[in-house]
Simulated scan of single mutants.
Amino acid sequence: MSDNGSEVFYLLEHRHTVDDKGRVCIPAEWRAPAGQETTFFLMLWDKTDQPPCLMGVPPSGMQELLRRLKELPFFDSNAESLQRLVARSTKVTADKVGRIRLPEQLAKAANLGKEVVLKGLLFRFQIWNPEFYDQVKAKDLDRRDESQKLV
């Protein structure tokens, strides 16, 4: 939710080039309204059933995630593992033309190169190596019937 009360939705997929300084342009419709800072938390998202990517989470989403993490059992091993995974995140702020710098360590872990795919997931987004994204996109099509049963 932006400060003016309008929620930003991360829609569609966008292919962009990463510049020599490791920056990528965020789609204009994913940015905060003029005069407000566009800030995200980027975290490495590497699940066992898919290649790694970076997950972009707006501050409101990160606050919700942190609230849910606080509710987990304090000494639970799975909770600790999840907290370590989430703690691999960093805050990034877009510059005046809407670029964010991809942290080198995270970009390398997600195998990001000169071209990336930014894929909207409504309330968050992912940044993919295009080859990895094509693999995941094919799996999504295979799962669509089962996935649609969730709603």
Rank of each mutant, 00 (worst) to 15 (best):
S89V: 05
S81W: 00
F74M: 13
Q83A: 15
S89D: 11
F74R: 14
V92E: 01
L69W: 04
T93H: 05
A79T: 05
F75H: 09
N78M: 10
R84P: 00
F75N: 12
P58D: 05
Q83D: 07
A94T: 04
L82Y: 01
R67Q: 15
V86K: 00
M62Y: 03
K96M: 10
E80L: 09
S89F: 02
R68V: 03
A94M: 09
R68H: 07
T90D: 08
A79Q: 08
S89K: 04
F74C: 04
A87G: 10
P59H: 02
P73L: 11
K70P: 00
P58N: 03
R68Y: 01
S77I: 07
K96D: 14
L85A: 12
N78P: 02
S81K: 11
S77F: 07
V86Y: 01
R88N: 14
K70A: 08
P58I: 05
S81M: 06
D95A: 11
F75A: 13
G61M: 04
E71R: 14
D76P: 04
A94W: 03
E80H: 08
V57P: 01
L69V: 06
F74Q: 13
E64F: 06
D76E: 14
S77N: 11
Q63H: 04
A87V: 01
E80A: 09
L69I: 12
M62A: 05
P59F: 02
A87H: 08
P58F: 05
E71P: 00
S89T: 08
L85F: 10
K91S: 15
S60K: 10
G98K: 07
K70V: 05
F74Y: 12
K70D: 11
S81V: 02
R68W: 00
S60G: 12
Q63W: 00
L85W: 05
Q63F: 00
N78G: 10
K96L: 13
A79M: 06
P58E: 03
R67N: 15
K96Q: 14
L72R: 11
R68K: 13
K70L: 08
L85H: 06
L65H: 02
F75D: 09
T93V: 15
S81A: 09
S89E: 07
L82Q: 02
S60L: 08
P59C: 03
T93Q: 15
Q83K: 15
F74T: 13
L82G: 02
L82C: 00
L72F: 04
A94K: 01
P59Q: 06
E71L: 13
A94S: 09
L65S: 01
P59A: 04
L85I: 08
K91E: 15
G98A: 08
R68T: 07
V86S: 02
T90R: 05
S89N: 14
F75M: 14
P59L: 02
S89I: 03
L72W: 06
A87D: 07
F75W: 12
E71N: 12
A79I: 07
Q83W: 01
M62Q: 09
K91D: 15
D95L: 13
K91I: 14
Q83H: 08
F75C: 05
V86W: 00
R67P: 01
F74N: 09
F74E: 12
N78C: 00
L65T: 10
S60R: 09
L72V: 06
P73I: 10
